[in-house]
């Protein structure tokens, strides 16, 4: 990393803007950020220099147009470290549910003139197109994650990747088990920690928005879901949800659907 104040860019692709808010929602600490980094591109906040060479690029959103493909290659060339943030950038996002269908059919079924809109057949993760150095999971990521990662990178520390399931966060918080004791369908056992067991703490089952944990045992989760009166399709819908293209969730959902992509079955 260069000796001057490191340069930071925030790039947006197809997304809801919610992960950029991890920075914009910092409150007063946002004003201290320029002391750490020189923010050269962050269109939503004001600075606009999309072609600048930078030390760190934070990339939000998925790739879904031919223009996106060119743009992300330029971002890669211009960035020493490229970090993808959130479910869209790391796994294509909830909008990648369209990947299970024929996107052309959907486009022409619904836009009167679909030819006027250029899109790819799929919504994809950034890593499908360029090398990614670090990933932050979550839909959305939170301020603690992004500031933690920036601090690690700026001080030359290797960031630690979260691999444990949400269950570990419930244990640490002393929460009663949602799935076993409360009998609510919960994706916590197969979902990566990082949110602080947000849903169990709010009185509901986890719905998997931080993507797959290191191990995903859908067979045993199905057993428990069946005891609670939910069928294979109901569990499949929970894998093919916010982070549907993460390989472990995608495969689990497909196994449960028996290879069929008909979500209405």
């Amino acid at each position: 990393m260069s000796r001057q104040k490191p340069k930071l860019a925030v790039h947006k692709f197809s997304s809801c803007d919610g992960c950029q808010l991890a920075l914009l929602n910092l409150g007063e600490p946002l004003l201290q950020l320029p002391a750490l980094v020189d923010i050269v591109h962050f269109a939503e906040a004001g600075p606009s220099d999309p072609a600048a060479k930078v030390d760190i690029s934070l990339v939000e959103g998925s790739i879904s147009t031919p223009e996106d493909v060119q743009r992300i290659q330029q971002v890669r060339e211009n960035s020493e470290i490229l970090v993808t943030v959130g479910a869209c950038a790391t796994a294509g996002g909830v909008q990648a549910l369209a990947n299970f269908a024929n996107r052309n059919d959907w486009m022409s079924a619904v836009y009167t003139e679909p030819d006027q809109i250029e899109t790819l057949q799929t919504s994809n993760a950034i890593a499908d197109y360029v090398k990614v150095d670090w990933e932050l999971q979550g839909c959305p990521i939170n301020s603690r994650q992004v500031i933690g990662l920036l601090r690690d990178l700026l001080s030359g520390v290797r960031p630690r990747e979260e691999l444990q399931p949400v269950c570990m966060e419930c244990k640490r918080k002393g929460l009663i088990c949602t799935l076993v004791s409360l009998g609510e369908p919960c994706m916590g056992p197969v979902t990566r920690a990082g949110c602080g067991a947000l849903c169990p703490a709010a009185g509901r089952g986890c719905y998997g928005c931080y993507g797959p944990a290191e191990q995903v045992n859908d067979a045993s989760l199905l057993q428990r879901f069946s005891q609670l009166g939910l069928d294979r399709q109901a569990l499949a819908r929970r894998f093919h949800f916010i982070v549907n293209q993460a390989p472990a969730f995608k495969a689990a959902g497909e196994r449960l659907k028996g290879g069929s992509h008909d979500r209405n079955a």
């Binding site: 197809s14 879904s64 147009t65 996106d68 996002g93 909830v94 909008q95 549910l97 369209a98 269908a101 996107r103 959907w106 486009m107 079924a109 619904v110 836009y111 809109i117 899109t119 919504s123 979500r263 209405n264």
Partner: peptide, 10 residues
Amino acid sequence: PPRLFEKFVE
């Protein structure tokens, strides 16, 4: 880019 939300909530 169109994200086709209305379609995939089906």
